[in-house]
């Protein structure tokens, strides 16, 4: 080994490495740095002993502490279930009216309902439940299938044209598309429906459509046009229109007969959560309708 080279200026040995005339001094590492380094080694060994560390053929060394993120998550979920259990039990055992009338239970149902609504219902009905064209507004007092607590809960449970065996179903035929009525008849009927909602319409057309309405529409929408909730037939005399109120929209609906779909939530949510959701929708519809209002409405 050759004689170590010394730097003239500082008197410190060099490493013998040289780059572009720059040589590296071989100063010792700072003591504290070495301590940190040795300390890290000690920490690593302690970590191997305490925590899961080494992979094996069939698994890994579990460590003395037996720490497991999976088990932690399971435990936290369990704790959450216990924590929610009380509220869930109360929701499941109390009646819908009791839930709504008790301030604490109502608050609980509203918070449960809000999060479930946001995750599942808002996609179609909007985050505030205000609905959109083709998707009913849940905040007003117009209900296709009834706005009492029980009816809302029932709709939530079985859905509309859903996979549920007891699903709610209504059928608006596509009169024009399926050739049941010709274009002129559809136009006449459109005028008749506009008239039903109290707006000015072509009197001649209305007269021509009188019999058409009685033959094709009155069965569901009733002769006076107020609709029938048992059949899910909308009221044609009010100012709210699911698919639009102008003549083109009405004509389009008579021609094409669109029918919306709502999934069944039974099995997806526990009965308690469905109750909470029903109360949430009912409360946010300004208290909705009292039970039994459906029969009285038309």
């Amino acid at each position: 080994m050759s004689e170590p080279e010394r730097d003239d200026h500082s008197g410190v040995e060099t490493t013998g490495h040289e780059w572009d005339g720059i040589r590296e001094l071989d100063n010792p590492l700072p003591r504290w740095w070495l301590w940190v380094f040795y300390g890290s080694i000690v920490v690593a060994v302690v970590y191997w002993i305490l925590m899961p560390a080494w992979p094996g053929l069939k698994g890994y060394t579990p460590g003395v502490l037996r720490q497991s993120d999976r088990a932690d998550v399971a435990e936290q979920l369990q704790a959450l279930q216990v924590q929610r259990g009380r509220g869930e039990t109360m929701l499941a055992t109390a009646s819908l009216q009791q839930i709504e009338a008790d301030p604490d239970l109502q608050a609980h149902a509203l918070s449960v309902g809000q999060s479930v609504f946001g995750d599942n219902c808002a996609t179609c009905h909007g985050a505030g439940g205000g609905g959109a064209r083709g998707y009913p507004n849940l905040r007003d007092d117009v209900w296709l299938w009834g706005g009492s607590l029980e009816e809302i809960e029932h709709t939530l449970r079985v859905g509309v044209r859903s996979a549920h065996p007891e699903t709610r179903t209504s059928q608006m035929p596509a009169f024009g598309r399926d050739g049941m009525l010709n274009a002129a008849q559809v136009s006449d009927l459109t005028e008749y429906v506009v008239r039903l909602s109290g707006r000015p319409a072509d009197a001649a057309a209305v007269g021509r459509a009188q019999q058409l309405y009685a033959d094709n529409c009155a069965a569901c929408h009733t002769p006076t046009g107020v609709g029938d909730r048992l059949l899910g037939a909308p009221d044609l005399t009010d100012r709210e229109w699911l698919y639009g109120s102008d003549r083109n929209s009405i004509r389009g609906q008579i021609h094409n007969g669109r029918n919306g779909v709502m999934p069944t939530w039974e099995g997806r949510f526990s009965p308690g959560v469905i109750k909470a959701l029903a109360v949430y929708v009912h409360v946010n519809a300004g208290g909705g309708e009292a039970s039994g209002a459906a029969a009285a409405a038309p």
């Binding site: 905040r139 007003d140 709210e240 300004g286």
Partner: peptide, 18 residues
Amino acid sequence: RDRNPASVRLHDGAVRNG
């Protein structure tokens, strides 16, 4: 005051705020 929806029109034309 509710902002979404800010107001709701009822079937008879009445207006409701939450």
